[in-house]
Amino acid sequence: MCLWIGWGNNEHLKEMKEKVIEVKNLVKKFGSFVANDHLNFDVYQGEIFGFLGANGAGKTTAMKILCGLSAPTSGEVKVAGFDIYKETEKVKRNIGYMSQKFSLYEDMTIAENIRFFSGIYGISPSDRKARQDVLLQNLGLESSKDTLIGSLPLGWKQKLAFSVAIFHEPRIVFLDEPTGGVDPITRRKFWDLIYEAADRGITVFVTTHYMDEAEYCNRVSIMNNGRIEALDTPEKLKEQYSAKNMDEVFLKIARNTE
């Protein structure tokens, strides 16, 4: 059942929704440098949450913490209901991750990649078989399961990488600039996949440098110098900053505080 349909306007549903990410006063320091300065935000189930910010604003640091790859200096963080300090392994089991840089193994076939990731997440062979059939059918790749990833066009790789990242049905999927470098049509088709995942109740946490993509998120946060400077639906942010589009909102926030 689709509740968090795209392009905003659904905040009245928030109360009904479960929090899948809870961040309270998150601080991360590297020596004297404060990479994350008291971050506070919640992300709800099935939401598409855009995590924006200038280069060096602290996005990657925060994302690593949410994925259980780095411990905060202080603050409370719960992901998929698990404590990020004590239940790191449970966090990792309940999330998926995909970035432009790390996706699938180029020198393995589609089926081998699926088998590999299924093994890591403890998916039984029979479940794997059934899910693999659905995945290949959805992407129209039934006849290509023995094709090496390295020989596929970038657009296909990214669609597959996304499908594999949610193959173990995680509560949340983290997407780090998933559409970098792909052509404009493929970029839009990739967002169709994001919507489908959100419709199935998977929370999508996404970073991007394409400001038109910020418009497709239910809510957007914008980071600058380690702090979250703004967080709301694209509609409200545009109103608040008297901006025509998210590009203007972003420029106003990121330029002002430099």
């Binding site: 910010g53 200038a54 970098g180 440098h209 590009d247 420029l251 990121a254 330029r255």
Partner: peptide, 10 residues
Amino acid sequence: TTGVDAVSRK
């Protein structure tokens, strides 16, 4: 400008 934020791109 690939992978560079909107402000730095401008």
